[in-house]
Design a protein around this nucleic acid. Structure first.
Lengths: 144, 144
DNA sequence: CTTGACCTTGGAGTAGACTCTAAGCTTTAT
DNA sequence: ATAAAGCTTAGAGTCTACTCCAAGGTCAAG
C-alpha cells in the first residue's frame, strides 16, 4: 500500500497530477486509510504505469481513458478494438506532422531568402513576403 | 472604410476574432464611426492580411505581435531582427516535429505488432506493451 | 509540545486562440 | 412600422493537462 506521495515519487510525478487523474476517472485509489488518506495498491501502481506509458507514445488523457476501458475488460474485447485506437491516433499524429512540415518549409523559404545582416529591414524579403505574398508563394516549388 | 463584418468577411474570419485581435493589441481599427462602429481602412486591411499570412506559416499571436512591432518600425530595424524570429520559430517547429515523429514511430511499432483481428484482446500485443514494456521497447530498432 | 512533513478538500490560475452570451442600440429592408 | 441583420460592451466558457493555493487534519521526531 502506498500513500499518494510515495506513488507520485515512484513515478516521478506530482501528487496534484494523481489527484487530477483521479478526478478525471483515470486512476481511483483502491482504498482509503482510516484517516482519509488515499491508499494505492500494486494494481493501482500498474495502472498508473500503463497511463504513463500511453502518454509517452502520445496518447491524450481522453484516449488513455478509452484504452483503459478496453484494458479492464480485455476478455470481452478484441484486438481490432485496440488497434483501431492506435491507428486513429497514428492518423492524427501524421496529420499534425504534415501540417508542421508545411510550416517548416514555409519558414525555411522565408529564412533562406533573408540576408540576416545588419541592413535596414525596409527591404527585408521576409517582411515583404508577409506583406503581400499569397500563402502559395511560401510553398516550396518542386519544379525548379 | 469597412465595418467589422465586412472586414471579417473579406478574410473569411469571425467578427469575434477581430475583436479578440484588437483586445490583444494586434489590430486596432483606425477610427470609429459616429455611431461607435469600428471603421477599418486599407492599411488595417493590409495589417490583417499580414497577421493571417504569419499565422498560416505557423506563428503564434504572440510571435506575430513581435513581427508587427518590427514591421511598423522597419526603418529602424534590421534584417537580422526579423530573421532571428523566423529562425527561432523554425527551431520550435522542428522540435515539435521531432517529438511527433517519435510518437509516430512508437505507434507504428505498436500497430505493426497487433493482428487487429477478432481475437480476444487478452493477448493483444499492444495492451501487453502498455502494461509492461519500458518506453525504450517502443522505439524503433535501427540495428535490425 | 511544537515543528515539519505529509495528507485532505474545493476551487482558482495558466496558456492559446478563440467562441459565445446577454442586453441593448443602429441600420436596412419590406 | 417592424423585423432582421448588424453593431456595441463586458464577461464567461471551451479545451488540455496540469499546477497552485488556502485552510485545516494527521503523524513522527526531538
Amino acid at each position: 500500500m502506498f500513500r499518494i506521495g510515495e506513488l507520485a515519487n515512484r513515478h516521478g510525478i506530482n501528487t496534484d497530477t494523481l489527484r487530477f487523474y483521479e478526478k478525471h476517472g483515470l486512476l481511483q485509489p483502491s482504498a482509503r486509510q482510516d484517516n482519509g488518506y488515499r491508499a494505492y495498491n500494486q494494481a493501482d501502481d500498474q495502472r498508473l504505469a500503463f497511463i504513463l506509458r500511453a502518454k509517452s507514445v502520445g496518447f491524450s488523457l481522453g484516449e488513455i481513458a478509452e484504452l483503459l476501458s478496453i484494458e479492464v475488460d480485455k476478455a470481452n474485447r478484441v484486438c481490432s478494438d485496440v488497434k483501431e485506437l492506435v491507428d486513429e491516433k497514428l492518423v492524427k499524429v501524421s496529420e499534425k506532422i504534415a501540417e508542421l512540415e508545411r510550416f517548416r518549409q514555409s519558414l525555411q523559404i522565408l529564412s533562406d531568402g533573408c540576408c540576416g545582416g545588419p541592413h535596414s529591414a525596409e527591404h527585408c524579403t521576409i517582411l515583404q513576403a508577409l506583406e503581400s505574398f499569397e500563402p502559395d508563394d511560401m510553398q516550396p516549388s518542386y519544379s525548379k
